[in-house]
Amino acid sequence: MIVETWGKTDVGKHRLTNEDCLYVDSEGRLILVLDGMGGHRAGEVASRLAMETISEFYGRHVKSTDVDLDLFDNYDDSFTFHANLLRQAAYKANRTVVEKSQEREEFVGMGSTLTGVAIHDFTASMINVGDSRMYLIRDGTIEQISKDHTLAEDQIERGIMSREEARESQLRHILSSVIGVDSRVRVHMDELTVFPGDIFLLCTDGLNAVMEDHEILEEVMRSKPGPDVLERLIQIVNDRGSPDNTTLALSVLFEENEEE
């Protein structure tokens, strides 16, 4: 399958700096979207450092044919090598950002969210930390594949809050897992089979702050997937006040042309 990916980032109307980060490898098969946090540009440092660490680690080990188990803190056999590699990369990024944050006073408390996907062998392997999201758009429906690491989501899981209540709750702004703050980090991991025509949308919460899932779906379906879709989404975010930075990556899968 062929993957085509487009990305776009926008500072928004209320922020002076863009602390988001976006990475797409040369073949469009590894896509990362990160949202850095921390005052005085520390957020930029955190998201960038996490992005560099993950892309470097994943790129270096993905081609290896033998699984070197020494590489992994814990290898989960129920997931593919690619998913395990991505999660390990996130662990490594976490350690790297934690160490960096201890170097200088202005880095204290900095951190980053992450949502990332690797597309390989009819499969999408994804991970996320924090509230940056990944959606699958298939057959005219939208499904959130990532899991929000927020206190609101925790309360939903415990049955204390309904999903509707959570949408309005202040707890949705409080992250329960983030890269670079604690020596331990919770990473959500998932895998699914992919088909030609599948669309993945990765985004920072700048999008979700002002758009509901069904609105995102409508906008994506309005035209052929491509840079225009991202332009329109950013335009809507800006029209609605764009409180935060917004970063988007859109990937589309195509059938390989088998005719010689």
């Binding site: 209320h14 924090g130 992250l175 703050v181 919460d205 006040g241």
Partner: peptide, 24 residues
């Protein structure tokens, strides 16, 4: 702030584990 009737201006917060548990 932001759009009238729309979502409020928001900002993401990180809390340490203890503070999270207390809040929950």
């Amino acid at each position: 702030e932001g759009v009238a009737g729309g979502p409020q201006f928001r900002d993401t917060v990180i809390l340490d584990t203890k503070a999270q548990q207390e809040l929950l």
